[in-house]
Each structure stands twice: as structure tokens, then as C-alpha cells.
Nucleic acid binder design. Structure first.
Length: 312
DNA sequence: CACCATGTTCCTTG
DNA sequence: CCAAGGAACATGGT
């Protein structure tokens, strides 16, 4: 269940639940899910340690544990379909449980249907990551400099995790729509104004998603068939949050801003959704023009958008 | 059967 | 050597 906002909301939840609990037993059910450590050494190292903190860096979860004077970091990545939760010892294990850690109270479960996720004690995966999008380190001048050296399409470039972390396929589409930038535009062709605008749109997209996800009734304890995903929100009777996304998954549907049909194309083997009228490759001299501000207000005042997100 | 899916890494190509 | 493109990983939903 990744992308930065989903991981952030999960981390905040786990930080409330996990600290203080001790590791009683470690079962690596899917050996490949523990890399590059060996399953046996991984399990042995964690034994009898106590969870202290839960943090996030990019889409990684970082658990710190200690035993007497020994400290260690457990790093997790959810891949495409990973979930992490603490369940009751009596609850049944999920079909695709990858790593199970029995605690003094309850059970830590890392399940992963497609097994693209992983757990490790090796911190080197945290090297070479770009700045956090919601930190001061995400600075538009550096962002601009990085983009100028690239001939890749901007949408593809955003996914590389070196100029900025945490932006995945869905939020890349959303941020580019908000910024009015064609996902096919060559990175180096973006103007300084477009880059500055895109930087702010990425931050808005992330911040609003975290804020929204913090209030939805997510199944962070792994008890239901629902999960901790909130790209599409939750289906709860009449209260449907499905239309929260502005372009992703809306192929053929009318753009909320201009009614043109949303297009789906493939870039780097991933689906990209965009509005062919609102998102242009052309360089806009005045990206903050009155017309554009009016358009963004109209997007935000769409009944299914404003009611759920504008409150933040 | 066809096509789609939230991510990253490795290999090949130019 | 480098940048960019594509396959691979693995399973399930529609």
C-alpha cells in the first residue's frame, strides 16, 4: 500500500501501537522478503529486542529496537501490495504472510500479496535518496537543476526518487495535473516558473493526501478485507470517496476543469493519466495567471473534491 | 484469454 | 562510462 502519504499515515498509527512491545519469536515465512540479510540471522538479531520508535523516510518504514545497550534498525518497504499491522495472537494469519513477529502482546505481521516488498536490517537502502517533499530540503532551485540535466519525460523523472522521494505513479499524475504540465514534457524543457509551481503542487498533493488519510476509517489492524489504502478512499455505504483523485484512473471521463476526455498513455511501462487540454507541453509564460487560478479553484470546488479535501 | 495494478532493481541498448 | 528503455519480480482483479 505505498506512496508516501499511505506510508506516513501507517507510520503514525504504528508509532501509537508498537513502542514498548518485545520480540518473542520471528518467523520468516517468505525468505525472499528478507533481503539482503539471511533469514536466520535476521530472526536471531531481532529476538528479545523491544520496539522503541517508528519513523518514515521516503516510502521506507524505519523501526528502531533495543535490548539493553544494543540498538538496531529494522527497515521495511511495502512494494506494491505490502501491509504491516499488529493483530491479536488468536487472529488467523493472512494467506500471503511474509514475515511474522510474535510480540509479548499481539503479533506483528508483514503480509505482501505480490512479494515486491521487503524487510532488512541493512540501512544502505536509505542512501542515495532525494529530499523529503514536505521538508525544507526540497528546494525548487535544486529541483530545477536536476531536471535540467534530464531528457526523460517529467512524469518518469519524478518516479526516480533522487530529486524528490515518495512520489509514486498515482500522485505523480495528480501533481502534474494540478501543475498544468504535460507528463510527456521533457524535464529539461520546463521553465523555472513551471518547476517552482510543480514543486508546490507536489507538496500540496502529498500534504492533502496525508491529511485526508488521517481521518478515513482505515483498517490499519488488518482485521477486514479492506486495507490501509486511501488513493481511492473507502467505500462505506453512501459515503463514497472514490472520486477524490482528479485524473488517475479516469480514462475517458470528463476533466473536472474543462470537460475534455482524460487520456491514458503508457510511460516507462506505467499508466499515465492526464488532461490533454489542461496539461500542456507549451511553455506558459504566466503559469500563475488569473485564468489558471480560477481553474484551480474550480477543480477544488468540485463537489467530490472540495467537500473532502479543501477543508484541510 | 486479455489487460490492468500503489515499486524498485537489474540488464540491455545506443 | 552514461542515460534511457524495458524486462523482471509475483499474484490477483476485472
Amino acid at each position: 500500500m505505498p506512496e508516501l502519504p499511505e506510508v506516513e499515515v501507517l507510520v503514525r498509527h504504528l508509532q501509537q501501537v508498537l513502542p514498548g512491545r518485545r520480540v518473542a519469536k520471528v518467523s520468516v515465512i517468505r525468505e525472499k522478503s528478507v533481503r539482503p540479510n539471511k533469514a536466520a540471522e535476521f530472526a536471531q538479531a531481532l529476538l528479545r529486542h523491544r520496539f522503541d520508535t517508528v519513523q518514515r523516510r521516503a516510502k521506507f518504514l524505519i523501526f528502531t529496537l533495543s535490548a539493553k545497550s544494543f540498538e538496531l534498525s529494522l527497515i521495511g518497504h511495502l512494494g506494491m501490495t505490502g501491509r504491516i499491522y499488529v493483530q491479536k495472537k488468536t487472529a488467523p494469519l493472512p494467506k500471503h504472510a511474509a514475515v511474522v513477529i510474535e510480540l509479548d502482546r499481539g503479533r506483528f505481521v508483514f503480509e505482501d500479496t505480490r512479494y515486491f516488498g521487503r524487510m532488512t536490517l541493512d540501512r544502505t537502502c536509505l542512501n542515495n535518496l532525494g529530499p523529503e517533499p514536505l521538508s525544507n530540503e526540497f528546494e525548487w532551485k535544486t529541483f530545477h537543476r536536476g531536471l535540467q540535466h534530464s531528457g526523460q519525460a517529467i512524469k518518469v523523472r519524478l518516479l526516480a526518487q533522487d530529486l524528490v522521494v515518495g512520489v509514486g505513479n498515482i500522485y505523480a499524475c495528480e501533481a502534474l495535473f494540478r501543475a498544468g504540465i504535460d507528463p510527456r514534457a521533457t524535464s529539461s524543457q520546463l521553465t523555472r516558473e513551471q518547476v517552482r509551481h510543480l514543486q508546490r503542487c507536489i507538496q500540496e498533493t502529498m500534504a492533502e493526501a496525508i491529511a485526508l488519510g488521517s481521518t478515513l476509517p482505515l483498517d490499519l489492524a488488518g482485521t477486514e478485507s479492506t486495507d490501509g489504502l486511501f488513493y481511492f478512499g473507502q467505500k462505506r455505504g453512501v459515503n463514497t470517496y472514490e472520486e477524490r483523485l482528479l485524473v488517475y484512473g479516469r480514462k475517458g471521463e470528463p476533466c473536472y476543469r474543462c470537460q475534455a476526455k482524460i487520456q491514458r498513455i503508457v510511460q516507462a511501462a506505467r499508466g499515465t493519466f492526464f488532461c490533454p487540454r489542461c496539461q500542456t507541453r507549451r511553455i506558459r509564460n504566466r503559469p500563475q495567471s488569473r485564468g489558471w487560478r480560477r481553474a484551480r479553484r474550480s477543480v477544488k470546488s468540485h463537489p467530490l473534491w472540495g467537500s473532502r479535501v479543501a477543508q484541510w
